[in-house]
Nucleic acid binder design. Structure first.
Length: 485
DNA sequence: GGGTTGATTGTTCAG
DNA sequence: CTGAACAATCAACCC
């Protein structure tokens, strides 16, 4: 899928053909777009171009009506504070309404986190590749969810620091969760080439053909550029080629754990190589207790059983993230793995093997360039979460944070669970001022929006006055997520 | 040796 | 000839 800008939209982007009528402005990525089933068209006008140009997030051909790659399409990351005005004054990019933290921390956001929108896009496609403009509300929710991940990212420690684990793990992007859901719910429904399911179509699965191929390799000597390396024997032992009907062996607990964890790690660090992920997972695995490992295995079996059942609407994985992690509970996945005690452990006394792994090599750019600790906590999120899980750790909150949007997608009734706070109190700044008071140090000073004095609830005041104020957003099915921001 | 995932590379085949 | 589909391999680690 391509993402294209409407170049130089002369007027309101919302007037773009097919654009969401709720499009609020040139930077309203989440409304001002259109998806025709193949391409994602993003509203763009001169301001947007200016912004993009300033950030060099694309190949700098903004003057041409050319297609641009997806990566550039990200929430405005304005490394240069001088560009903040684009966010503050354009109002086009409604951070408050559209998934961006009210304290306008976006500009300070490190680059590596800017890939989330891209993930979002891929998520759109992950839904069986179906994406209709009519699904925008859902998409917007997803976007919102990603925004939550942004916050969690900020609140997350660096991966190369003692508390690193809380980062990648707690910052599981919701998109990643969705991705996993897809992976599980469909029994590799999207997977083009599941080992066993290799649709017996061209199925070379027959051993004869296999042998043919093998012999071909041997004769021609071409193929498998792996070449030399003395790996030959390896290819020969390739004789295997399991019988498609052969009952699959139970996957090892570690494999299951790997499957679950790698997705999270990858979600947080898309650039992580398999080796990196594997090491991290191994370290995590080491840190797991026997009980947790066993639990992982059990759950894996359960999941496996579930995935074997056709047409499961609810992803088996969901429980892992929807159930409030408890230290006493067996490993239910990442949540349990990163139990409060674990987190404490990592922060105070990083697991030897883990720290070894993490320090043994320069971690991925995206990891090492994680947000500074000063951006760790986004007050509203923290507050919102603490309301419902007062005793849960930040990590758990992060996990819950992720689960909220997930639930909102899967089960609206469940999503409502997070609404009471909003319903129980009048909308407006009251809630947020309360939040601000509880997080005196995490709002004002952190905000790159230098215009906001420290501790100022400017964003509170500003919120309702925005084009996309609460009144507006509350009309959308994202009001829940709105509260999150 | 088999399992985890995803990228890469090469081959095959259809249009 | 081109592109899609498929298959194999590799990475690090655990069982």
């Amino acid at each position: 899928m391509d993402v294209r800008f409407y170049p130089s939209a002369p007027t309101a982007v919302g007037s773009l053909p097919g654009a969401d009528p709720t499009c609020l402005g040139p930077l309203d990525y989440y409304h001002c777009n259109k998806f025709d089933g193949e391409n994602m068209y993003m509203g763009m006008n001169d301001n947007t171009q200016e912004f993009l140009s300033a950030n060099q997030t694309y190949n700098g051909q903004n003057e041409n009506n050319e297609d641009y790659e997806i990566p550039p399409i990200t929430p405005p990351n304005l490394p240069d504070p001088s560009l903040l005005h684009l966010v503050d004054h354009e109002t086009g990019y409604h951070s408050l309404c559209h998934s961006l933290p009210p304290n306008s921390l976006i500009p300070a956001y490190p680059y590596q986190n800017m890939d989330l929108p891209a993930i979002m896009v891929s998520n759109m496609l992950s839904q069986e590749g179906h994406l209709l403009s009519s699904q925008l509300p859902t998409i917007q929710e997803m976007v919102h969810s990603d925004a939550t991940s942004y916050d969690s990212n900020r609140q997350v420690p660096l991966i190369n620091r003692p508390g690193m684990l809380a980062g990648p793990m707690s910052a599981l992007s919701q998109s990643q969760l969705i991705s996993q859901m897809g992976m599980r719910s469909g029994v590799t429904h999207g997977s083009p080439s599941p080992p066993g399911s290799k649709s017996a179509t061209p199925s070379p699965s027959s051993s004869t053909q296999e042998e043919e191929t093998e012999s071909h390799f041997k004769v021609t000597g071409e193929k498998r550029p792996s070449t030399d390396l003395g790996k030959k024997p390896k290819s020969q032992k390739k004789k295997k080629k399991k019988d498609p009907n052969e009952p699959q062996k139970p996957v090892s607990a570690y494999a299951l754990f790997f499957r679950d964890t790698q997705a999270a790690i990858k979600g947080q660090n898309p650039n992580a190589t398999f080796g990196d992920v594997s090491k991290i997972v191994a370290s995590m695995w080491d840190s797991l207790g026997e009980e947790q490992k066993q639990s992982s295995a059990d759950q894996g079996e359960t999941k496996s059983a579930q995935t074997n059942q056709p047409s499961k609407m609810i992803p088996p994985k969901q429980p892992m993230y929807t159930m409030p992690p408890q230290a006493s509970s067996p490993y239910p996945g990442l949540g349990s793995f990163l139990s409060p005690s674990d987190l404490q452990n990592y922060r105070g006394h990083p697991h030897p093997s883990l720290s070894r792994t993490l320090n043994s090599k320069p971690m991925l750019p995206s990891i090492s360039a994680s947000p500074p600790p000063s951006f760790q906590i986004s007050p509203p999120l923290h507050q919102q979460l603490s309301l419902h899980h007062p005793q849960s750790s930040i990590l758990n909150q992060s996990l819950n944070m992720q689960q909220v949007p997930q639930q909102s997608i899967l089960s609206p009734p469940m999503a409502l669970q997070v609404q009471p706070p909003m319903n129980s109190s009048p909308p407006g700044q009251q809630d947020f001022s309360h939040i601000s008071s509880e997080f005196p140090n995490s709002v004002g000073p952190r905000s790159p929006g230098a215009s906001n004095p420290p501790g100022s609830t400017d964003w509170d005041n500003d919120y309702p006055s925005r084009e996309c104020g609460i009144n507006h957003c509350s009309m959308l099915p994202r009001d829940k997520a709105l509260y999150l921001t």
